[in-house]
Design a binder for these strands. Structure first.
Length: 484
RNA sequence: GCGGAAGUAGCUCAAUUGGUAGAGCGAUAGCCUUCCAAGCUAUAGGUUGCGAGUUCGAGACUCGUCUUCCGCUCCA
């Protein structure tokens, strides 16, 4: 594990040194838990995003994509439950330093009381919570002598509010008026739900169908750490799949399998993954699990698959007074149309930044290439070709005798089709290693023989072997590799 | 948010009880051409994270602050 932790550190260093990921605003000491993608990281991230998008929308005929705004009407977050569930009053025990959600603490204590006293206490608490009376909550805890389970003391801090949504002012005129406040979306899902009818009607979508979206979301995490695992600004790739009520179990299982296929399609072995079923379900779910990947620091969530019932659409119907129903013309067992209903939803939601980290972790390898004569090693990123930031490096063996000119011809032929990199400086071996470090799958070397017979050397990243192929075959070879 | 550790060039690390901040790798330019990093020459890069304090003198000591990592906590 210690080694694995070193590997994680090494990957972080590598990300910075080779232009994948930088800390945001680094020249000003950085901003906590905010990161920027560099020249290769942004390409990698884009390739993953594009692959997901293509797989979800192009290859699933009944899924369409949208791109909703980050700002949404404030009522959205009341309907979604985020205003209530995302800003929990917390309290700390000064002796044990343990932090509790106030409602959890009081409810836990209430469970130990006789039924009547318990109900009375919970009622009282709920009244205070509704009024956001933090002082009252604290005295409630103190009156009942509720103790910390760790320290056994009643030495509490004041009750404090932690709002995990970022708020900002809408409109140019600032003021104390709360009406101006909007939130940066804490999840992308709601942009899909509020557009459910728009897409269903204009796209003439028939259930079951899905709406996919990729975009930024923002959470004011109390503790945001572990590199790009938990950032305050992050990118989600998610899809809401609308289904007939009662069919959620089978579709939930379907999407668990289907999403795993995408993961395995990146060439990552199955034993690096596991499903983690949620025992404690979120306020909106009737079943939920995570797809976890075995990072160098252990299994961590990459993707969540949730059976969200009709929670979201039903609440939006209630708050907006707009009917969120769908008329199902399919015939049931009695030969009658299923008729109107609010669809149930299966959600697949994957963190793009975590996926980048996953792909990097899987690809990163330090290889010892030492021989009896000399020590040698290389760092190689074994990305699947379709995800590599650079697909092809074109390297004239020497920068004279007309070799650069030939290399430039190949460059012109290929660069319209995929990302290429041209370099004529330094020894050829050094150039190969530099490409290994950014995960370029193919290097083409132009040498003197090219002038005679039009063949070039292709050097493969993973095996480090090389072979001669006609220069005219290069483009096709790369295109074939990145299509699979 | 609590506790612990750390922060010196792009990277890895030096710098004697407190006495002028260095090296290797890397980078850039040129030379040399040799299909797996290390041939030659030259050049650039640091208010030692930042700000105070102690001192004749601080990279080192003290305090504050920022950032990162680890443990707890949180994770709809």
């Amino acid at each position: 594990m210690a080694n694995d932790n070193n590997k994680f550190q090494a990957i972080i260093s590598h990300c910075k040194e080779y232009g994948f990921i930088f800390q945001s605003s680094e020249i000003y000491d950085g901003l906590s838990a905010v990161y920027d993608y560099g020249q290769y990281g942004s390409e990698l991230k884009k390739n993953i995003r594009d692959d997901w998008w293509k797989w979800m929308t192009q290859l699933h005929e009944n899924i369409v994509g949208i791109d909703a705004a980050i700002f949404m009407h404030p009522t959205t977050w009341k309907a979604s439950g985020h205003v209530d569930n995302f800003s929990d009053p917390m309290i700390d025990n000064k002796d044990s330093k343990k932090r509790y959600r106030v409602d959890h603490l009081i409810e836990g204590f209430a469970d130990t009381l006789p039924e009547e006293a318990s109900k009375a206490l919970v009622n009282k608490m709920e009244q205070l919570l509704a009024k956001e009376d933090f002082a009252g909550l604290k005295s409630l805890i103190e009156e009942n002598k509720i103790k910390c389970s760790v320290s056994g003391t009643c030495n509490w801090t004041d009750v404090r509010q932690f709002n995990l949504m970022f708020a900002t002012e809408f409109g140019a005129v600032s003021g104390e008026n709360d009406d101006n406040m909007v939130y940066l979306r804490p999840e992308t899902a709601q942009g899909i739900f509020v557009n459910f009818l728009n897409v269903q009607k204009t796209g003439r979508m028939k259930i079951p169908f899905g709406i996919a979206q990729v975009g930024k979301a923002f959470r004011n995490e109390i503790v945001a750490r572990q590199f790009i695992f938990r950032m305050r600004e992050f990118e989600q790739m998610e899809m809401q799949f609308f289904i007939r009520p009662g069919t959620q179990k089978e579709w939930y299982e379907y999407w668990k399998e289907e999403r795993m296929k995408w993961h395995l399609g990146m060439g990552i072995p199955a034993d690096k993954y596991r499903f983690h079923d949620h025992v404690k379900l979120a306020h909106y779910a009737d079943a939920a699990c995570d797809i976890e990947y075995n990072f160098p620091i252990g299994f961590k969530e990459v993707e969540g698959i949730h059976s969200r019932t009709d929670f979201d659409l039903r609440n939006h119907q209630e708050y907006s007074k707009k009917k969120m129903q769908y008329f199902d013309n399919d015939l049931d067992a009695n030969g009658k149309p299923y008729g109107n209903y609010i669809p149930y939803v299966i959600e697949t939601s994957i963190g793009l930044d975590r996926t980048v980290m996953m792909v990097l972790s899987e690809a990163y390898e330090i290889q010892d290439l030492s021989t009896a004569d000399k020590e040698d090693s290389r760092v190689v990123l074994k990305f699947p070709p379709k995800l590599s930031p650079i697909k092809l490096a074109i390297l004239p063996l020497v920068k004279k005798d007309g070799l650069p000119e030939i290399a430039r011809q190949l460059m012109d032929e290929c660069k319209g089709s995929f990302r290429c990199f041209y370099e004529e400086k330094d020894a050829i071996g050094k150039r190969y290693r530099r490409q290994d470090a950014i995960g370029t799958p193919f290097c083409i070397t132009i040498d003197h023989q090219t002038k005679e017979d039009g063949t070039v050397t292709v050097r493969y990243r993973d095996s480090m072997t090389q072979e001669r192929i006609p220069m005219s075959a290069v483009k096709g070879m790369v295109e074939k590799a990145i299509a699979s």
